[in-house]
Amino acid sequence: MTHDDDTTRDAPDTDLPPFSVNVAQTRDITNEHLRALLDAFRRGGVEPLVFGDGNKPEAAVIPFAAFVRLMKHDHADHVRDESAFQAELSRRIADSDDARARGEDSSTLITSDEDLLAWAETVGEPFASMIEDGLRAPDEKAERDDG
């Protein structure tokens, strides 16, 4: 059967071409099959045992070294995503620190409704009108949005 792998969908240049596998029926697999498979792995074989019910590939038995390699690959992806995210955070913090070092106030102190409205106007529309409406509205409006 032909199986389209989608685990690398987001990784350009690493997409697997469609490939075929022989699906063993779960009920047909015996201890002897597993023993023979292990022997093949010990001899350096890497052909997996793919099995499932109804000719659907649902699981694969692979060499343990391949499993560890897969785990490392997934972990590397995770670290790469997190590193990009942390780099963006660090950039924003650095920008904020630079602004502070230049004497630019990095935050706005609001002591009244008028201050809040003036600050909202620096954000722009439609936000300013929303803040103005919110200041006029009864307090329970915000309670409704509280998840």
């Binding site: 609001i110 409704d113 809040l116 909202a120 439609p126 936000f127 929303m130 803040i131 919110g134 200041l135 509205a137 307090d139 409006k141 915000a142 309670e143 949005d145 509280d146």
Partner: peptide, 13 residues
């Protein structure tokens, strides 16, 4: 934007 503005007004209050 609307719910963020509602929330900020509420927090201010």
């Amino acid at each position: 934007l609307q719910v963020a503005s509602n929330a900020l007004v509420a927090l201010k209050k």
